[in-house]
Design a binder for these strands. Structure first.
Length: 202
DNA sequence: CATGGGATTGACT
DNA sequence: GTCAATCCCATGC
């Protein structure tokens, strides 16, 4: 049986809840995919979010209907994938930072030019390369595909999470808006041991 | 129209 | 640990 894609109502909630709840969900594209193990939340109220500058050609999708993809080029090289969250009119999105690979692993190895499973999707630029996601998927609808996100299996408990500051930003760097599946070896980087706080699923 | 700054990665000292 | 690659786009003249 086919997994259902998460619907617009899932994404229309507060971006921190969406970022937390995407951990454990399955991201797929063109026969490749994996389980999301790391996310970060961005909101127009804080300076690290691209939507902080307001409505522009680049940011309008962040303010659009929830459940769309926001894909942009970073450092001239990498495509980074976000899921637009919050109701229409609020500029917010969840950056997908790492996956545990589950499907199409050989195709990922080919696209990445690496063999180790931990090197395929352990970073926001790596996972888009591994899954073949690029700027053409910007503004596409995650509830319809080709890029899709399926919910956790109903029986599955919410994973234990590690929460900490977001990575690689200079503005609003103090906000603890990064979520990781606790203990996963597929996250982009280890969290600072001293600053970590854990959230239990229930 | 010119400029500068990245939500990164991989190679190298 | 340091650092360059490389391009989109927001901003400012």
């Amino acid at each position: 049986m086919r997994s259902q894609a998460l619907d617009a109502a899932f994404y229309a909630r507060p971006v921190l809840a969406v970022a937390r709840d995407l951990i454990g969900c399955a991201l797929t594209h063109s026969g490749c995919g994996g389980v999301i193990v790391e996310t970060e939340a961005y909101h127009d109220s804080e300076a690290a979010c691209h939507a902080h500058v307001g409505l522009t050609a680049r940011t309008h999708v962040l303010f659009a209907t929830p459940g769309r993809a926001y894909v942009y080029r970073s450092y001239g090289i990498h495509a980074l994938l976000n899921a637009v969250a919050e109701p229409e009119g609020v500029g917010a999105a969840v950056l997908i930072r790492a996956l545990e690979p589950t499907h199409g692993i050989d195709a990922m190895r080919t696209r990445r030019g690496r063999d180790r499973q931990e090197d395929l999707c352990s970073g926001p630029g790596k996972l888009t390369q591994a899954l073949g996601i690029d700027l053409d998927q910007n503004e596409s609808d995650l509830t319809l595909g080709p890029v899709r996100i399926a919910p956790r299996a109903p029986a599955q408990v919410e994973p234990t999470m590690v929460v900490g500051p977001r990575i690689g930003i200079t503005k609003a760097a103090e906000l603890p808006w990064r979520f990781c599946a606790a203990g996963s070896r597929f996250v982009s980087r280890p969290w600072p041991p001293g600053l970590r706080a854990t959230l239990n699923g229930a």
